[in-house]
Design a protein around this nucleic acid. Sequence first.
DNA 1: CATGAATGAGGATTCATTCAT
DNA 2: GATGAATGAATCCTCATTCAT
Lengths: 204, 204, 204, 204
Amino acid sequence: MKNTLSRRERVKLANRKAILSAAEEVFAQKGFYAATTDEIAERAEFSKGALYTYFRSKEEIFLSLMREKVGSLEKKIKESIKVTLNPIEGIENLIKAHLEFFEENKEFFQIMASERGRFEMGIKNRLRRELMRRFQSYLKEVEGVMKAAVDNKELKAIDPNHLAIALIGMIHSFTAQWILTGGESSLMELSPVITMLFFGGAKG
Amino acid sequence: MKNTLSRRERVKLANRKAILSAAEEVFAQKGFYAATTDEIAERAEFSKGALYTYFRSKEEIFLSLMREKVGSLEKKIKESIKVTLNPIEGIENLIKAHLEFFEENKEFFQIMASERGRFEMGIKNRLRRELMRRFQSYLKEVEGVMKAAVDNKELKAIDPNHLAIALIGMIHSFTAQWILTGGESSLMELSPVITMLFFGGAKG
Amino acid sequence: MKNTLSRRERVKLANRKAILSAAEEVFAQKGFYAATTDEIAERAEFSKGALYTYFRSKEEIFLSLMREKVGSLEKKIKESIKVTLNPIEGIENLIKAHLEFFEENKEFFQIMASERGRFEMGIKNRLRRELMRRFQSYLKEVEGVMKAAVDNKELKAIDPNHLAIALIGMIHSFTAQWILTGGESSLMELSPVITMLFFGGAKG
Amino acid sequence: MKNTLSRRERVKLANRKAILSAAEEVFAQKGFYAATTDEIAERAEFSKGALYTYFRSKEEIFLSLMREKVGSLEKKIKESIKVTLNPIEGIENLIKAHLEFFEENKEFFQIMASERGRFEMGIKNRLRRELMRRFQSYLKEVEGVMKAAVDNKELKAIDPNHLAIALIGMIHSFTAQWILTGGESSLMELSPVITMLFFGGAKG
DNA sequence: CATGAATGAGGATTCATTCAT
DNA sequence: GATGAATGAATCCTCATTCAT
């Protein structure tokens, strides 16, 4: 997979990753603005200047990070759905995939939750546009499964968009609360509750 | 209630409100950091210096604003519940109350959505602590109704905390999407869908 | 002339002048790039931040300075010519005016001499364009007198543009040398030599 | 003369020249400060590190370049004079030699014109001192011819220093203007005008 | 009280120079 | 010797906060 890269290139790639990883922590804790290049560099154990060997600007670090993460999320979601042809099972998998991903990417979740509303700003930026697009595409994916399930009469005849919004809202809400209360126990454990509530509702 | 205030005091209060109102717009658009006192002052039609007559710092403007808004939300929620003794109806009212509030307080919603994760930062701050407390208290309120409904066997025997998280997640998600897509049509119209999904689930 | 300005406005104007004056010294000594905003601020006895109350950027300080100076030079040259209708006398006056101006504006001369070649860079800039234009207009002014004298048959039938270039070259050269050797004695004293050489040439 | 150099030494010398040549272009376009070692290295088709094998610092590149060029100019001027024993003819040759040199060394002219005023800075520097010395020596050379011509009564009894300043000023001015207007036609063509104006003056 | 100019700490970014490979 | 990534000092600019008027 990566055996055509020279040693130097492999080092560069690893350094890039280290910077992104450090940035992820800092952005999660402080948000885009309050995060400083100083802190990112320090946490990545690089000089401040080195960041600029790998990225053009602080914004580019941020957007690259988001792009990679949103990309992984999107991929994971797609895969979780494709495993089965049964829409209901697909949605169950999708819930699990989400929780698994957020459990492994707490920091990304925090960043996304707080910065998403501002992705639209500075729309001229190529990376920002791409990010928006990827995010939309991830939402459409979820909507797609919903539609399939509705068409199959396995779900009520509700606008698939609304179904997607509802499910994602629940997932995000549980994840946020899990992080707020320390993120100790496994987030995955909540999968049955969410599944049950989404499909069967709360009424007894 | 406030008719014992001197003219001067009434003016001060009005000015405070004007500043908070201006701040709300700016914080919503730009977030806490990117918002500048310059812009807040300008939009409030005050000098930059005047802000500091009414508030100790930019942070205090922010926190005061949030406190007032979270306070109103909390109050509104409490009232929506008290109207009825029937828990199910209470939850329906609570959904409507939320949507109504967010429809009237789009800016606040945006701010809350993006800054909530960082309320905990700098916890020594009196205002921050109070804000956290108020926010928790609002959540407890929702949880309370859920518990009543569960006890009444009107809802499934699920941890009321989970029920609250699920419902709030759905509400926030719909609100966020509504804002993202322009916030034109009435958010209130979504109340039936949310109610139906929360109580009855998605399964057909 | 300035009696319609409020006190505050007069202070602002004076501060602006103080900054420009400090900048003039620093730019003359170090050139545009090596000059630092720190040093300009310090020499103007202002904080670094204050510069930005009066100017948008270091470049704007530089260009504003140049604009004012080139403007004064242009004005002085025009006036020196208009005094008389006799072209020869006009040129004599023009030489004197130049020397007088450069003697009083040593720093400006140094800046102009070294930065002129790069005025063209970044041509999108409004101020830069204006500066170029002003500079051209000053050259045209000199050319104009030359043409008048040629038309009058008081000067040889040489391209007035060449005459202007030659005279200005001599003036600049003498000024540069005068500054290089300390600028002690009066530059004005060189007026007769320049006049003589320009009109009569070196041949004995 | 240089046939005793080993291959290695010849390569080093060639590399040095390539770097200086690249530096000349960059310094001419951007000036000393705005020129970056990155760009010089790139244009010389060397790595940035290689520059430091051949030169101790960016400043040394600059000064070495100037030294070589000023040296060539000086040499060319000396030769142009020595050809003849007739001072008038010597000056004519000198004008032509200047124009020829600047036509072939546009970049150097631009650099010299804008950086000369700052050669004095950091006078402790050995290279800087040498450069100043060489420049003075070039001026003295011109002054020498003038003195000879004055002694010969072929030129008016004017301080030879002034005569040198005047002539050089004219030459520089014409060169600068030629470059500013694109440097298309031959600069050499201006030789007769300069000669005529210098010797005979402008008066008709 | 209101004003808005002044302050200065802080932050992103650049770039000459060094040095491990 | 050559390379180019890493360094970190230096620099421009921003903006919350203060304070004289």
